[in-house]
Nucleic acid binder design. Structure first.
Lengths: 144, 144
DNA sequence: GACATAAATGAGAAGTCTTCTCACTTACTC
DNA sequence: GAGTAAGTGAGAAGACTTCTCATTTATGTC
């Protein structure tokens, strides 16, 4: 679980304590192949630490965010989730179940000169989010 | 306020009624050069229609969104709305003053096959929003 | 290993934003 | 002008997040 280890190290280096609860949250994040919402993270992490409180999950996310270990994203649908590692990637959100996947390929940068010309804006950043149906929901749809 | 008029027409064409409350919301949106949150919109619209309820603002936004007359603006925390012309376009938002411009050029579609392959998602739609500095704020920055 | 202490926690209250409910009002059709 | 179905206001309810505070615990020091 190298991801979890490095996040733990980041926390320690920043002077935060490594508690059972934080370890459980880190582990839940590392174990999930896809970004999770705070609630999902709570449910996962409780397996490792049953008495974990939801507030602690939010506090841990806050701390990790401060340290730069995770990013909190707000999807167009209003749902929010935790993305790890933060940085240059975008998300696809399932319109059926809300599952989120990440992808890094992006060609928006090549569009920017044209938009600058068209609008006069000096473009600094972009937000790209795709919506669709995840493999699981696609399979279920076909099964019906 | 041509923006407001055309939104009103869009509503009527879609079979919705034009009420005093909706007119107040439309007018508030048309009068604002920047995206507004539901709460801000409520406060503005109440000037034209003092007894306006907040729920009505949300309902009106819903209806307008359905009709394609407004869109969520994500740059500012994803909680605000802009009125916009119908049709395929995206927004550039000024990070300084909040002003929004539209552009139609978009190359995201060509990205979708790759993302589908990478994530297994069946991609149906995309959201693209650029952030930067508008011509007015650029000029002011240079003047300093 | 025991102790001191400041950080971290759990549980639930509180806050914020949004949607829902339902009795009442009103825009639109005839 | 009357009938009617869409729309409304007010407040309850719901989802998510943050705050509060008494209690617990990780960590450095002895």
């Amino acid at each position: 679980m190298s991801g979890s280890t490095s996040l733990a190290e980041q926390l320690k280096m920043a002077g935060f304590r490594m508690t059972r609860q934080r370890a459980a949250v880190l582990r839940a994040m590392a174990d999930s192949p896809t970004p999770l919402s705070a609630l999902q993270l709570w449910n996962q992490a409780k397996r490792n630490c049953p008495c974990l409180g939801l507030a602690t999950v939010y506090r841990t996310l806050d701390v990790l965010n401060m340290v730069g270990g995770v990013e909190r994203c707000h999807a167009a649908s209003g749902r929010s989730f935790v993305s790890c590692p933060p940085g240059d990637h975008h998300h696809v959100v399932c319109v059926v179940c809300g599952r989120v996947a990440e992808f890094s390929r992006c060609n928006v940068a090549s569009l920017i000169p044209e938009v600058s010309r068209e609008t006069g804006f000096h473009v600094e950043s972009h937000l790209l989010e795709l919506a669709g149906i995840c493999p699981t929901c696609l399979a279920e749809e076909k099964a019906e």
